[in-house]
Write a protein that binds this DNA or RNA. Structure first.
Length: 106
DNA sequence: CTAGTGACTGTTT
DNA sequence: AAAACAGCCACTA
């Protein structure tokens, strides 16, 4: 049984699981909803530790600009994330960014 | 304990 | 609008 580095990760995952289909949210919003404002960085860190095949829709989490963040050693994931969001009905502009006013999750 | 790092955010150039 | 800088906090060595 795999050990979680920190049970706090589950708190972030729980918030991400509540994101409805066709909507996105920011790292800061997830941290805020999780009851830990200001830990946006830790949200990204928690998602980075997220195991493959988890039930957490990590692709619905983007940065404050409404764009997909480039993580270390794999920008291919950004393309996958964009494809998943487009498949859920999320629109991207010519700059590859999402309108948080339209698809943002309150 | 200190130091380094990172899927971030807001303000200033 | 994009880039640079600083602030923030948790995890690892």
């Amino acid at each position: 049984m795999e050990n979680k580095s920190s049970a706090s990760y589950e708190r972030y995952y729980d918030v991400v699981r509540r994101i409805p289909v066709g909507r996105v949210t920011t790292y800061g919003a997830v941290a805020h909803e999780a009851g830990l404002p200001g830990r946006a960085r830790q949200v990204g860190y928690a998602l980075a530790a997220l195991p493959d095949g988890s039930d957490v829709p990590w692709h619905r989490v983007v940065n404050a600009r409404g764009e997909i963040s480039e993580r270390s050693g794999g920008r291919a994931f950004a393309r996958i994330q964009r494809t998943l969001l487009e498949h859920e009905g999320v629109d991207f502009d010519a700059h590859g960014r999402i309108d948080l006013e339209r698809h943002g999750w309150p």
